[in-house]
């Protein structure tokens, strides 16, 4: 794979990934487009620019670990991993079908280059702590350079275990851990502020002992800066609050709770692909 720090190139890849996501979910007839689209710049920037990884050597001990804790948004992860060369592009349209390596939620049994099986919300940050602690224990040896990146949904962090993990990561000074909150303001039943408000969210993470960076999650340069700042952080884990738009890139999906968990129709798909042309 060809990594790049060029914002225009990353933006072009992101747009392609959005198209793939729409096609995959339409073909599957079910899935979660909104959160895949809101996380598109985050996942693309990580895999094509930020992460130390090698698709030809997926078990490389010093690779960075990426955990999609909000596992229902796996279409964007599958699209990006396939683009990187981890898994076949020509099978992407088998998403959610019997025998597919592209399961409805990430499943390491079917796709071993995933770092974790997720789907039940609230678990990924703890897994990231464990992987980062393993890297700390391996310091100076193979596996000692690895960092962990965990993408959390905003609705997801209503789960109590996230805050157990937040407390532990700061207390244990896990500074090779980055949490990215895809703060798209919408969850299944509606707007986050109406279901169970998270605010003041930056204060919460700071209060738990994290270094907090706020960024517009569709601004690739801003994300690059945030990841750069996170990797120079010593003694503290970093939380990037990525302010995003649910359904970003498709006018009728943007800020529309319906497209949290509803597949587009064929007509909607065609319209979306036009907008993403």
């Amino acid at each position: 794979m060809q990594k790049t720090s060029d914002v225009a190139q990353l933006a072009a890849i992101t747009k392609r990934m959005r198209r793939t996501v729409i096609e995959m979910i339409t073909e599957a007839g079910s899935g979660h487009p909104g959160g895949s689209l809101s996380a598109a710049e985050i996942v693309t920037t990580l895999f094509f620019d930020v992460l130390r990884h090698d698709p030809d050597n997926p078990q490389w001990p010093d690779r960075d670990r990426f955990i999609l804790s909000k596992g229902h948004c796996c279409p964007i992860l599958y699209a990006v991993m396939a683009e990187c060369g981890y898994c076949p592009k020509d099978k992407l349209m088998t998403l959610r079908k019997l025998g597919s390596i592209y399961q409805g939620h990430p499943d390491v049994r079917f796709l071993p280059s995933l770092e974790a099986s997720t789907g039940s919300l609230g678990l990924g940050l703890s897994l990231g702590i464990g992987m980062s602690l393993a890297a700390r224990l391996n310091k100076g040896k193979p596996g000692g350079k690895s960092r962990s990146y965990v993408v959390l949904g905003d609705g997801e962090i209503q789960e109590g275990q996230i805050w157990e993990a937040a407390m532990a990561a700061a207390f244990l000074h896990v500074d090779n851990l980055v949490a990215i909150v895809d703060y798209n303001q919408i969850q299944l039943d509606g707007f986050v502020k109406d279901i169970m408000s998270l605010e003041p969210l930056a204060d919460k993470w700071r209060g738990f002992g994290w270094h907090v960076i706020e960024a517009y999650g569709h601004d690739i340069a801003a994300l690059q800066n945030a990841f750069g700042e996170a990797s120079s952080m010593q003694g503290k884990p970093t939380c990037i609050l990525a302010h995003t738009i649910k359904g970003k890139g498709v006018s009728f999906m943007e800020n529309n709770p319906k497209f949290h968990g509803t597949a587009p129709t064929r007509e909607e798909c065609a319209k979306a692909l036009q907008e993403l042309a």
């Binding site: 001990p61 770092e115 703890s126 702590i129 464990g130 602690l133 393993a134 690895s146 275990q161 993990a165």
Partner: peptide, 28 residues
């Protein structure tokens, strides 16, 4: 002491941290 991780009174978090350690090759 370096190989002991005190998780506080948070068993759910402890199990998943352990899973992360195991995924990265440790025997927790």
């Amino acid at each position: 002491p370096d190989r002991f991780i005190e998780c506080g009174i948070a068993e759910a978090n402890m199990i998943a941290i352990g899973a992360g350690l195991a995924s990265a090759g440790k025997i927790p």
